[in-house]
């Protein structure tokens, strides 16, 4: 065929075919989405520190392991209260002359999703310890350590933030571990990662493929009790540790804790729901409002409490769901 033997016609045809398909699957949809999505009204603009932290996040290739997208499927529920929408990314613009836009959605989840990490784990001291070496707080973690974001000094100057690092992670160095400006900026960025609520009236996308609720043969029988240990691992363990002993100078132990062993569950429920600053003077960090941030239900809180009350040698009276439910409602109404 003459057409196939003419290199000009052949290669021009292949190019135009490819280009026209590309126009329809990339350029037009990208233009369209860029033109027709605006940032959510509730979204805060990044302050300078947070923006610097974001650049550190990009520079160190954190996106290789951490996604920032809640997919609209049931298994992603734990990463956010709603699926991500285009508007969540609308405010992301070109970084600078040399660097492209970074939505940081990611394609691999070797580490947890970070869409909502600012709500899930808002404590600065935890993030700093974790950045210095993740294995201080999460033994099984394979995340890289970032000691170059810290300085080791004989004594911390006023206003500097020190990190309490156990001796075995100091690699023989003596002195105080002081967070650099970069470390604080990176943590500020992580703290800023929170899902913005959709404006009222806008349909909230649903999670697809809902997990089948265990359809037991005889309806009416008691619901299978939740796995308190698993819930503890997801919500509490990274600070209070699998052995319940916390981390010296950072996170208080639950093993033998007066609050946990108390037969009156009121204070414990309040702490789980609203957080706690009662032991800051002893050097422990403030506890975030885990129950509220992570949308824990009364059943889940009960399971966690009973796990804490009966593990690591703790032997306190267990609590029942009805009482906890009542307590939660009264605490919430007080607010």
């Amino acid at each position: 065929m003459e057409f196939f033997d003419n290199h000009k016609k052949l290669f021009t045809a292949a190019f135009l075919f490819f280009l026209s398909l590309s126009l329809f699957v990339v350029i037009f949809p990208a233009f369209d989405i860029q033109k027709n999505t605006a940032p959510l009204p509730g979204a805060t603009t990044l302050n300078a520190d947070v923006e610097q932290g974001r650049r550190l996040f990009i520079a160190n290739g954190c996106v290789a392991c951490h996604t920032q997208q809640v997919r609209n499927i049931d298994m992603d529920k734990k990463w956010g209260s709603r699926p991500s929408v285009a508007a969540d990314y609308a405010r992301v613009r070109r970084t600078d002359l040399f660097r492209n836009t970074a939505t940081l959605m990611g394609t691999e989840r070797t580490g947890p999703d970070l869409t909502n990490i600012g709500s899930r784990q808002p404590v600065e001291s935890w993030h700093l310890v974790h950045l210095f070496n993740p294995r201080i707080v999460v033994k099984e973690s394979i995340m890289p350590a970032y000691p170059w974001l810290f300085e080791i000094k004989d004594s911390a100057a006023k206003g500097e933030i020190t990190v309490s690092v156990p001796a075995e992670f100091m690699e023989g160095a003596q002195g105080k571990v002081v967070a650099t400006k970069e470390a604080l900026q990176l943590v500020a960025y992580l703290q800023s990662l929170k899902q913005t609520e959709l404006p009222s009236g806008r349909p909230v996308p649903t999670f697809l493929y809902p997990a089948k609720t265990a359809n037991t043969a005889s309806p009416g029988s008691a619901k299978p009790s939740l796995d308190g240990a698993a819930l503890y691992a997801t919500n509490c363990q990274s600070c209070h540790q699998p052995n319940g002993e916390g981390l010296k100078g950072a996170f208080p132990p639950l093993k033998g804790s007066k609050v946990v062993l108390d037969d009156n569950p009121e204070l414990m429920v309040d702490i789980i729901l609203n957080g706690y600053t009662g032991r800051v003077s002893e050097g422990y960090g403030p506890m975030p409002a885990v129950g509220t941030n992570n949308n824990l239900t009364a059943e889940e809180i009960t399971a966690i409490m009973n796990h804490e009350k009966s593990s690591w040698g703790n032997d306190a009276k267990k609590v029942d769901l009805a009482a906890i439910d009542k307590l939660i409602n009264s605490i919430k109404s007080k607010k």
Binding site: A30, F31, I33, A86, Y89, T101, A102, T103
Partner: peptide, 12 residues
């Protein structure tokens, strides 16, 4: 750069 803002970047 002209079609890379927000989610446009992800499509690209």
């Amino acid at each position: 750069p002209w079609w890379q803002q927000g989610l446009g970047e992800t499509i690209v």
